[in-house]
Design a protein around this nucleic acid. Sequence first.
DNA 1: CCTTAATCCTGGAAGC
DNA 2: TGCTTCCAGGATTAAG
Length: 294
Amino acid sequence: MPELPEVETLRRSLEPRLVGRRIVRATLHRRDVLVLPGDPEGGFSRARAGARPVRFRARDLLAGARVTGLVRRGKQLGVVGRVDPGDQPALCVHLGMSGRLLWAPAGARPALVDHVHASWRLDDGSRLVFRDPRRFGGLWAFASVGELERARWGRLGPDALGVTARALAGALAGSRRAIKGALLDQGVVAGVGNIYADEALFAAAIDPRREAGSLDPDQTQALARQLRRVLRRAVRARGSTLRDYVDAEGRAGAFQLSHAVYGRAGQACRSCGGVLESGLVAQRTTVWCPACQS
DNA sequence: CCTTAATCCTGGAAGC
DNA sequence: TGCTTCCAGGATTAAG
């Protein structure tokens, strides 16, 4: 379940491998994993299986381009390429829940064969593959990084790593839904998923069921601060590996060892020693400490 | 406008 | 051991 820290870890592990390299070949193994600007959904949502496919070109997958940068917004990654000064396409990668980008050096045997939906060969002989068994993720092609930011990232809230109390307060004002649900809404703040929502709410001592608009200024400030802090610490630990998340080179993260509440229902609160409670909040399994969080 | 449910998809775990 | 059932979850769309 890649959230912001896992995607940022992926970005950092991929950056030295990709930037400056030319993509000599790109292959799409499943058409419905790629969405083009002209696709029926307007290039925003996943192409439906039955949708009429728009003809794609290998260069939509950056074939022939040199990679100039890797950018991230929330849980999404953008690979920016350059064919010539007037042609700098960008490809957005969203891992969804089970997606992975894996890099392999020249000559390495392919470790994964199933559920690989796209693959790239670089000019140094290394390879990059996009694998996503559950296919909640996908690839979105854009003519430029500006177009990607406008058409796809435009409706995202501020990146959670730098969210301010002011921005958070504005997005939560008047909302009657549970604060947990608001944090999971990428339009409120981008990059938070089920793990880090629970961790940040615990760190800020806020009950996940609280109405989002009912937080006082101190609590909003604490929440913004703890969101930044928890995510920063998770990035430093190279993300959380629960089931099978790994970075581009197959390395696991370590932040799962620091989880205070996620996955610890029924266990002792690390702060007060009480029993951690779990339940469904905003349709998601949620764990919190009834004594520490209100 | 708001919130909630259903949906997509597969692998792994738990239950019988 | 082998089968079935359930659950995990990001984000959108449809429905309430």
